[in-house]
Amino acid sequence: MIDEIRKIVAERLNETDDKGARLDGMVALRRTGPAVAPHVFVAGDDLSTLEINPRYPLMTVVSRLHKRLPDIRLGVVARGCDERAYVEMAKRNQIDPERLVILGFACTAEEALECYCAEPFPKNLVVGTPAAPGPQNPIVAKYDTMTLAERRAFWKQQFVKCIKCYGCRNICPECFCEACAMEDKAWVEPGFLAPPFPAFHLIRAMHMASRCIACRQCEHTCPAHIPLTVLYDLMRRDMEALLGYVPGADLAALPPLSVTLEQTPLLLGDAHDPATIPLAPIGR
């Protein structure tokens, strides 16, 4: 698969479109000795160093370049999660879709399993065959059977490990606010380690509700091994049940928390009487 990707990247970098324009670069991973890091390949580069592992949030690289270089036209070698990240970022003006070409490849079945990935392939699939979706995270799968006290005990045990590195936020392709609520003294009191329950993690969870595209980068970068995506998976599930929104699925879909009821109505209960809005899924 990697050879095919390298070949297609080389072709795309040398191609001109109908207006005679070429891509200015291809965002992908590059191997240098034993190390692999994000890189922008340009026409003529040695593509034998192009890699697809380990996963980095490459759409963040695209976004940083799009913001700083207003004319640049890029390609990106993307997985399913990268493409979903693109959808939510483009929607929020972090990436210019007009200046990006996505070269998608499918993840392996093993990767889908590892990431509990529901869609281990991009819509712009150029290389590879889609693998079957991975299973649900086992903690999420049994979550409904846990009592409030058990849930509390579980998360307390997790959150107490937090060293407040902000790595979850820093690595997240969907975390791009100039001012972060998690750095605001009004919401997260400074000087506490672990951060006091519940603010820090719940603020992030709420902010992720219409953004988290389940790329699992936060969990991989967490030095304390907090199963953050369990929290975000549950938020995603509630978001889908309550407002029918699946982050990353559709560029045209409006983020429901930012728009009116006419634009995205509540799917459960009656907005005129909030007491009728059940917890989602019903009965939880």
Binding site: Y143, L148, A149, E150, R151, R152, A153, F154, W155, P198, H201, L202, A205, M206, A209, L231, L234, M235, D238, M239, L242, L243, P256, L257, S258, V259, T260, L261, T264, L266, L268, G269, A271, P274, I277, L279, A280, R284
Partner: peptide, 21 residues
């Protein structure tokens, strides 16, 4: 319209982390 979407979601989150919604 914002609060009627946001608050039920926050109630769900409270339930998720084990605080009575």
């Amino acid at each position: 319209h914002r609060s009627v979407k946001r608050m039920p979601l926050l109630r769900n989150l409270l339930a998720t982390v084990g605080v009575n919604p």
